[in-house]
Amino acid sequence: MEKCPQCGFALNGDESVCPNCGYVLKSDGIASPPPPPTSSGNTEKNDRPLIPFADSSKGFVDRFLETVKLVIFSPRQFFSNYNFKSNIGMGILFAVIVGFISAVLNLVYQLVFNTSIYSIIARFGNIPVKDLQFQNAIGVFGGALSLIFVPIGIVIALFITSGIYHLLLMMVNGANEGFEDTFNVVAYTSAATLFAIVPFCGNVFGVIF
């Protein structure tokens, strides 16, 4: 029995196109050349859709929100269905945006809660309010200044983390995909840091997630 050279589907012999995978079997009476020698696994992986954030056909905000939604609410679907072979530049950009947002959120919470805590301490601790306000102002100023270094820190942390993960995967024969895949997985996982939106326990929950 004749079989499709692409997917191995059993054929009657009179089809011009494989009914299973759409491979062109005969074109104007001339049989098409056999497909390039690729393993079925690779073909399947290359057919996977691009990560929404790396898909430039959509608006920037839309693809960012779609990716965040997928990572947080459908992680299994996201990490098994999408093609992580995309440019690592997009992964870096995603992680930097997400990390910067969570750093700003942390700073805002620090400002809000420190101010209230300081005012309570000043009221009950018999400490001049001005001294505490000055301490708080220095803390906030330092925090705001450190935001400049957040993107640099994120990029460094991304490379160190993904390097360690990839090395460990290589040791257990788990690094079947390239370094780009490991890097992108680590980069897109950073969406969990957005749990910082929840005060007090958000950061801890993000780490566990």
Partner: peptide
């Protein structure tokens, strides 16, 4: 192609200098 060793060289040199 992505030059991964060079990226790591730059990242670690930069962070080392800082």
């Amino acid at each position: 192609e992505i030059n991964i060793p060079l990226i790591y060289f730059l990242v670690f040199s930069f962070s080392g200098l800082i």
